[in-house]
Nucleic acid binder design. Structure first.
Lengths: 149, 149
DNA sequence: ACGAATTCCTAGTAAATAGCTAGGGATTGA
DNA sequence: TCAATCCCTAGCTATTTACTAGGAATTCGT
């Protein structure tokens, strides 16, 4: 039930881009270094995100990547699903996938359905903007802790 | 983010045992045939469930397995966690596991935490008895559909 | 007492997946 | 022109998954 590095690194990369939103293109080399990810591996994660229209790229020197939409318009669900596939505990609950033997009588199905729904509920309601806000809140907390001490 | 066959088969097996609860020991051979699982593979799934005290075994001829508690006392969470490990999207949110680089500033952490929590909410609140009830309800529906037609 | 049915244990193994690395072509700013 | 960048395909290693194999220990029925 774990996410793979694709999803986790991809999310880190998108968050990094959100932090630099509006400041021109960010190169993969910069992201790779800040997030401690191999640049070649990162390329492969970023490719589907670009093709899906979450990212825009600028080629050539001083090029890089930019968010294609505002951070508030990009949900975690989009990012993770692109890189991981549907966030379902079993493929039989995914629309379009093959159902289990006799899905009418498969009681496990109900369970997988509920898990699927609850995961989607969470990730659909968190945007990159929410992550930026959370980051900001955490930094504030840390600063006031330091003043206290 | 998929469950493995361990979790899925194990759940099926436990549900099968719940269906036969109170009717004496059920052999792995019987479960294996009904649920279309290799009996040798099933042995390996059942072993941790027994060691954890969810199942009791009766050795020798006419032996088999029995639920160690009432179906209402066995949650899906116990079963799946035993076979899959913690139902977390990343190990950094699991208590006792190594945290990420700097968990104070890792905003992804918040997301994984929320997913983890929502999955646990779902599975902790479904028992084998709930699955039995659901099965019963589905059968009733099917019967009334047939009468209608 | 014997044999069939069962649980129990350890080991091995083939296929898939994860997590990268390697190399090179295409594009563009300075 | 050249250095920096994106872009694409291929390959490779380690781990995990999903089993299979074989056999010892136990117990019921006869």
């Amino acid at each position: 039930m774990k996410l793979s590095t694709k999803g986790r690194y991809g999310l880190k990369a998108m968050f990094d881009l959100a932090l630099h939103d509006g400041k021109g293109p960010v190169s993969l080399a910069a992201i790779a270094e800040r997030q401690s990810i191999s640049i070649h591996y990162l390329e492969q994660l970023v490719s589907p995100l670009r093709k899906a229209g979450l990212l825009k790229s600028v080629r050539g020197a001083q090029g890089g990547y930019l968010l294609a939409k505002a951070p508030s318009e990009i949900s975690i669900k989009e990012i993770l699903e692109l890189l991981e596939g549907p966030l379902a505990p079993a493929s039989c609950v995914v629309e379009g996938e093959e159902a289990c033997d006799n899905s009418n009588f498969c009681v496990s199905h109900m369970i997988y359905d509920r898990i699927y729904e609850s995961i989607n509920q969470v990730v659909a309601n968190i945007s990159l903007q929410d992550m930026l806000d959370e980051q900001h809140r955490k930094l504030q907390d840390t600063i006031s802790d330091m003043k206290q001490a």
